[in-house]
Simulated scan of single mutants.
Amino acid sequence: MSNIKLIIEERASNIGNFMVGRLLPFREKRMVGPFAFIDHMGPVCLNDHENLDVPPHPHIGLSTLTYLFEGSIMHKDSLGNEVEIKPGQVNWMTAGAGIVHSERTPAYLRHSEKMLHGLQIWVALPKEIEKMAPEFFHVESNDIPSWESDGISFKLIAGAAFGKESPVPVYSPLYFLELKTKERKTVKIGDDLFGESGLYILEGAIESEGYTYEPKQLLVAKDSKLCEFVMQENTTVYIFGGTAFPEERFIYWNFVATTKDIIEEAKTKWLEQSFDNVPGEADFVPLPEQGRSIKN
């Protein structure tokens, strides 16, 4: 029997003035471990008058992880951070009780052609700290654990696995790994993973028990400890997952919480514009129409 429990196809979604490929949440699988949301951005070439502009918007109850393959994003938040995100770096913002941030093309790139390609991820917080004070960390690419094994290049972008630990300060047991190979290789993960596990194919293809899977597919495993597959030539995959929470999570817009009441509080707070502001930013993303339901 195949170890693949579910295949999720990347779905187009509009995040304002930019199209992304949405992987999570999915109607049959809302979360994988603590991972609640994954968007694949690009690859897209923006011309000299096209830019990424996501005005200030709020988050609660989660950590965001931005990881770029190409391009650059300027991050500004209500804690006063202003950081340019470049390929290979990790932008880790923990919202907790509430944070506001904007994401834009940096000023020096706004009048030139540029590429943008990467992943944006939400990791839900454990119930006991979902209202913690917001935090922000930026990790340089050379601080991410990287190693080679049997012709496969590994990066541990966040969490812990293979006896290694990323400097990204996560708040629950999880892992987010990059695997790359130029040659056809068999991967046997064994006991190095735990909890729920998903595999996203960025480029190339993998083979598992007679089936071939290609880019823009997210494969959710039945058992992370039975993770074995063949990577074809010039393949890059991302494996993520971890220990699932005992409680369900509700998702509305940019809010993740263990109760609908917490989300209602956040909605009211944003409508009243009583979240802290992003310094130097005057516009904002309005709350979606009130008729939308809170998803679980």
Rank of each mutant, 00 (worst) to 15 (best):
Y238V: 10
A221W: 11
G210T: 12
L193W: 07
K188R: 13
Y238R: 01
S208P: 00
V170S: 05
A160P: 00
Q273A: 05
L179E: 10
K260H: 04
G198S: 11
K185R: 15
P288L: 00
L177W: 05
F176L: 14
C227A: 04
F194V: 10
F284K: 04
V230F: 00
I239P: 08
G195K: 06
E178P: 02
F255H: 09
I239Y: 05
E196D: 15
G291A: 12
P279W: 03
T212A: 13
L218V: 04
N277D: 15
T212D: 12
E196M: 10
T212C: 15
F250L: 06
G190A: 06
I251H: 12
S166E: 09
S149C: 01
S274L: 10
S274A: 11
E272K: 14
C227Y: 02
F245K: 01
Q232S: 14
S208H: 15
P246R: 11
T236I: 11
P279H: 03
G241P: 08
V285M: 14
K182I: 08
T186D: 15
V168N: 07
K269N: 10
Y252S: 03
A221L: 15
I262P: 00
N234V: 06
F154V: 05
K188N: 14
E214D: 12
E203H: 09
F176A: 04
A161C: 09
G242N: 05
R184H: 08
V237Q: 06
F162I: 06
P288D: 06
E207H: 07
R184M: 07
K225R: 15
S172W: 04
V256Q: 03
Y238Q: 02
L177D: 10
L287D: 00
G204S: 11
T258I: 02
P167S: 04
S149M: 01
D191L: 08
R249D: 11
Q232Y: 15
V170T: 15
Y175I: 07
S224M: 02
E264F: 13
L156G: 01
F284V: 00
E272L: 13
L226T: 02
Q232R: 13
E165I: 04
S208E: 13
T186S: 13
Q232A: 14
E214F: 14
L193T: 03
G190V: 07
D283L: 04
Y211M: 14
A221D: 09
L177K: 03
E289I: 00
V230G: 02
M231P: 06
A266M: 11
G163S: 09
V285G: 02
A221C: 08
L177Y: 06
G291Q: 11
E214W: 11
P286R: 00
K188W: 01
I201C: 05
F250W: 11
S149Q: 12
F229D: 03
G151V: 07
L199K: 07
V220L: 11
G159A: 03
Q217P: 02
F194P: 09
K260A: 07
N234T: 12
R184P: 02
S197C: 15
F275S: 07
E148D: 13
K222Q: 12
L271T: 11
I152F: 08
D283W: 00
E148I: 05
F245P: 05
F245C: 02
I239C: 05
A282E: 13
K216P: 01
L156N: 02
A257S: 13
G242M: 04
I189G: 01
L199M: 13
L271I: 14
F154Y: 15
V220Y: 08
G241L: 03
M231Y: 03
G151T: 08
C227N: 12
A158T: 10
G190R: 06
P167K: 03
